[in-house]
Write a protein that binds this DNA or RNA. Structure first.
Lengths: 395, 395
DNA sequence: AAACCGCTTGAATCCAAAC
DNA sequence: CGTTTGGATTCAAGCGGTT
């Protein structure tokens, strides 16, 4: 965590620095990381050196074009996203805005960097077409399926239950981009991760509130979503840029996963709240993040889903039934053996087999967690998650 | 199935007619249905009367043929916008093609018709943006999640496990489009249907094969997908247009679901195979397709009709569900609040709203009558009157 | 203590017939 | 055409208070 330590040196618990432009205390042409730049993203990005970020996550305005107000069947009013920053005069105006920030972002991307952009049907088609026009090379579109979306109250459309993320390389033919295929697969029951992800929206304690207890930001994204993005397409020490930082979810997750962040935010209230939020984050132990594994195996249902759900926390210790063998849960859903002579990282099944010297192992029954002084197989956590998710949600 | 019978009259088991243009045997300006038009879809659609189809399903080609040009070595220029030039030319050609067929399709859509377009990340963003540019009004984007997608063999991306459908109305502000909300909900555990659908890809016996046993068409869609589309947004007797018929899935499903189809296909081999396929389809029994009575479409019954019919007597007391609020029925079909400080008289809805301090209220469910010691919403009386009226009207 | 109930809320392009 | 009025319409979670 070289660059992270620069900012935190001598002030380990202070908030990230807020800056209106380039920080000249930084080495010339080195990108100032782990801070929030306040201002218009196109202007702010122009002050950064070219080819300096490894990954971009962008959550631009969606241009919702809402008409009147909407009420629930119980006559309560839906708190719509009617903020000024989401208003555009026309598709042309939105396109010009989009083109400008995409170009500004592209300049600061390293040749092998990739970009993620999230949106809904209101804007994602325009964004995707412009990305193609500007020479980005789409690698996947990834669907975020919301486990608890807002329903369609009037019964006139399908429940708008997903958002779309476009994952793209900077240039056509890019081959050296970061994609942690084996780690993702190892955390997904050794099955390739698909282009549709099921995750809940951001509610409860994770949702930032203002002094009056109202939601601070209308469109705060869940940390689990950003964690999947960064665990997929970046590595510890990378610089992650977010040109529309908002409530700071991407920066908070970057810090937790030991990536560096550069955030741009126009609204000072949002920026200040994000800074405080980021400051409170404690990075995960490095052991929970290092070294992608190389694995191959069989069965179903993802251990990483337990991590996403919060039932299992990265860093949690797993043991066998008798407590002799120990392992640590990693953020991507793989586990690392603790007492191994060499670093051993992989799926719960493969690591279980390795620990026993067996060819195969059912990690769900081999590994245990200690709760209230008693050891339970992690299979009970899986059963709990299945129960929570219900029959409909993940067919 | 009026129009269907025109084609099948005198030749009940023959294949749909193949035609190069307008069939002059049809009544002038009536759209020729249940046949395949062979040729370029823009040209063929120009021969059809305007405002003549109820729903469109389009699975356009997206072979951009860009691979060769785009795989040249990555150069080191700082600004890669120039790189996009060649591909912009190619994208432009695709855009021109897309714009042309979308306009041709729009002309033949009825004002309340809707269109579905399916695609992948290669083309769907361009198609969606152009649809917005041409004035279509997006209602939903619907994700087809493939339960058995093709794996990603090289491990450099996520498994491409979905395709995207855009569902749009012909014009902004369209409200009268067909959407079978209640039927869909009824078939989905009484929960409204979401924008992500899980369905297997087309394999096995459903997949058309050529004489050599190879798959006839590279992108044959599963009939289950088309069935969900048509069951969602059309009704029996509707005319469904498919400008890129291919192997004929949409027409086959339309016939089975007792919709009429108009298919356009440029490739004669595909058209012939589709014709044979469609010919073998047996429409489902009408009883399997009739729409269940929906509350939204039920004939309106005024509260005064209950008074007129004698089901409700002037002077009868109404209360809310808990018996706190009381009102009295007046002879003209209005009601009067009993405990109001000032005299309050009006419709069951207005008085219900007033009693609650709400802006709106469904008086049919708010107000109750006491019968045999139990409270029933007055909606049950309305249902009884509707039943009696239904019996009378059929006599 | 665990279960249960009621209330709140989330990126939303969310009515239709009659007058 | 605009305006008024009837009356149809919601799912999953989290949280707090009660049983």
């Amino acid at each position: 965590m070289r660059l992270m330590s620069v900012v935190r040196k001598g002030a380990p618990r202070r908030a990230p620095r807020l800056s209106g432009g380039v920080d000249f205390a930084e080495p010339s042409r080195a990108i100032p990381t782990d801070r929030i730049l306040i201002g218009d993203c196109v202007e702010q990005l122009a002050s950064l050196p070219p080819h300096s970020v490894d990954m971009v996550f962008a959550d631009p305005p969606y241009n919702l074009q809402l008409q009147g107000e909407l009420k629930r069947p119980d006559d309560s009013r839906v708190d719509a996203v009617d903020d000024a920053w989401d208003q555009f005069e026309s598709f042309e105006a939105y396109d010009a805005f989009t083109r400008a920030w995409l170009l500004a972002v592209k300049r600061v991307m390293k040749p092998n960097a990739t970009i993620w952009v999230i949106g809904s049907y209101h804007n994602i088609f325009r964004v995707g077409a412009l990305m193609q026009d500007l020479g980005f090379w789409i690698l996947n579109d990834v669907v975020w399926r919301k486990s608890n979306p807002m329903p369609n109250f009037r019964g006139r459309r399908f429940t708008n239950a997903h958002e779309t993320m476009i994952w793209a390389a900077r240039d056509p033919g890019a081959k050296g981009y970061q994609f942690n295929y084996e780690a993702l697969k190892g955390g997904n029951e050794d099955v390739q991760v698909r282009s549709d992800w099921l995750l809940p929206i951001c509610t409860g304690g994770e949702r930032l509130k203002d002094a009056q207890g109202r939601k601070l930001h209308p469109t705060q994204k869940p940390e689990a979503l950003l964690a999947r993005v960064m665990l997929s397409a970046s590595k510890p020490g990378d610089v992650v840029l977010d040109p529309f930082l908002g409530s700071g979810t991407s920066a908070a997750v970057a810090k937790r996963l030991r990536r560096h962040f550069v955030g741009v935010e126009r609204d000072e209230t949002y920026a200040a709240a994000a800074a405080a939020r980021i400051d409170a984050i404690e990075p995960l132990p490095e052991a929970a993040l290092v070294a992608p594994p190389s694995a191959r195996e069989a069965p179903r249902v993802a251990f990483s889903a337990l991590v996403d759900s919060g039932l299992v926390t990265p860093g949690l210790e797993l043991t066998d039934a008798k407590g002799h063998v120990r392992a640590v849960v990693r953020a991507d859903g793989t586990i690392a053996l603790v007492n191994a002579a060499t670093l051993a990282v992989g799926s719960i099944h493969r690591m279980g087999a390795l620990a026993q010297g067996a060819e195969a192992c059912n990690g769900w029954t081999f590994w245990h967690v200690e709760q209230e002084g008693r050891r339970h197989p992690i299979d009970v956590l899986r059963a709990r998650l299945r129960a929570e998710m219900g029959i409909r949600s993940e067919e």
